Amino acid sequence: MDRRTFLRGTAVGAGTVALGGSLWTSVAGAAPAQPGAGPYGALLGPDANGVRLPAGFTSRVVARSGRFVTRTLHLWHGAPDGGACFPDGDGWIYVSNSELPLVGGVSALRFAGDGRIRGAYSILGGTNVNCAGGATPWGTWLSCEEVPFGQVWETDPYGRNGAGARPAMGRFKHEAAAADPDRRVIYLTEDEGDGCLYRFTPDTWGNLSSGRLDVLCAPAEPVTGPVTWRPVPRPGDWLAGTRNQVAEARHFDGGEGAHYRDGRLWFTTKGDNRVWVYDAAAGVLDIAYDDGLVPAGTAPLTGVDNITGRPNGDLFVAEDGGDMQICLITADATVAPFLQVTGHDGSEITGPAFSPDGRRLYFSSQRGTSNSPLAGVTFEVTGPFRDAA
């Protein structure tokens, strides 16, 4: 019997799993998250856009790859990926990466307060496989290149300032970034089968041009528990690789999305379909969700990828493949589908992000219905998102 099969049996038999679960218990009331009824009810049939949503929610398409964005002369990019929203007067801006090789970058959609699109433009171009990223507290978007020796690019969502590379944040196969303003660090995931979790401490908060790159260190077993951080000696050494320079580094199976809130970092790993939670104050790592720790055949969330959250503590996790769903993990550790895109079976869901008021959710189907990076579709969902957990 392999370890995941054993753990699955433990979860089914006991209801919870003692994998350092006290952290997740203190956060959400149970550990790890288990399938259950979501707070918005069952998904209805597909709407005109092929999106299944709970009652009261509606979708619209706001951009399609290779087509002009409504009322603009901007062609929306191919392979839309990671994204985030930024306030803009009475409206907001949604930025979206392009995961195309060599001609990647970032585009932005500008919305008026009533939701009308009032502009679209590029804020980064000519980069390589821009996958996920993260917003900074000072209003920039970190766009991460998912290639060996890739870089983090800091961009201006408002289009006023040019983009710049931030090599001090390490040269590796970047995935996502999440800012921790409490400790004044940026967490970084790495999309490798033996990737690491990193923490960048800038010399000056708000200036990412220089600083120290650390790697999370812990033994492979036990899976959860206390961790430490150690400096990566040569963050730009492409021969050695950042993940190979510190012997004590903890390796993760395909780092993906990252989201920070209230002293905790939530990040995902696609190789083992896990959502992790790192308590930054306590220095403890735990598992929030693992598809191997739910009753066999009942896992609603597979192919875990990008992750975002709302102020009430709800987490929204996009699937790379799976059932083409965005699943919800509630603060009481229940996991359930929130939406599903139908007819896009060869695609993946990317870039989930909420408008600043939390009332609109943006995301993309990266390859659309034809499984082509030039057929991406970017959606908006509105409805009665709850404010309280």
Rank of each mutant, 00 (worst) to 15 (best):
T58P: 07
D314Y: 00
G292E: 05
D114R: 11
T298G: 01
T298D: 00
Q34M: 14
G13H: 12
R250T: 04
T189W: 02
L374M: 13
F111I: 08
T330A: 04
V106G: 02
V129Q: 11
A318M: 05
H344F: 10
A14L: 15
G206D: 06
S210M: 08
G322T: 10
V275Q: 07
D320K: 00
G115H: 07
T224Q: 11
G376A: 01
G358A: 09
A31I: 01
R4G: 12
L19W: 14
D387H: 03
F149C: 15
P226A: 14
A168G: 11
G66A: 11
R183V: 02
I117Q: 09
L213W: 06
P300R: 00
R250I: 04
E248Q: 15
F68Q: 14
P222S: 07
F111S: 04
H251L: 13
G134Y: 00
L285G: 07
Q245W: 09
E192I: 04
V304Y: 02
A258Y: 02
N244P: 13
A63F: 03
G358V: 07
V223C: 09
F363V: 10
Q34H: 12
L19K: 05
A247M: 12
G241C: 09
G257H: 05
A165W: 05
F68S: 14
S22P: 00
P80L: 01
C131Y: 00
A120T: 09
T378H: 03
G321Q: 11
A63I: 08
V69N: 01
Y362V: 11
W92G: 02
D2L: 07
T136F: 08
F379N: 03
L23I: 14
A258N: 05
P137H: 07
V12I: 03
A220D: 08
A336R: 04
P337F: 08
N130S: 06
T268P: 08
C196G: 15
A11C: 12
T330H: 07
S364Y: 02
L239N: 15
S364Q: 01
V381K: 10
N161T: 15
T330N: 05
G255E: 12
A108N: 03
L188F: 01
G271A: 11
R212P: 09
G13C: 09
S122K: 08
W238T: 15
P356K: 10
E192L: 14
I186M: 13
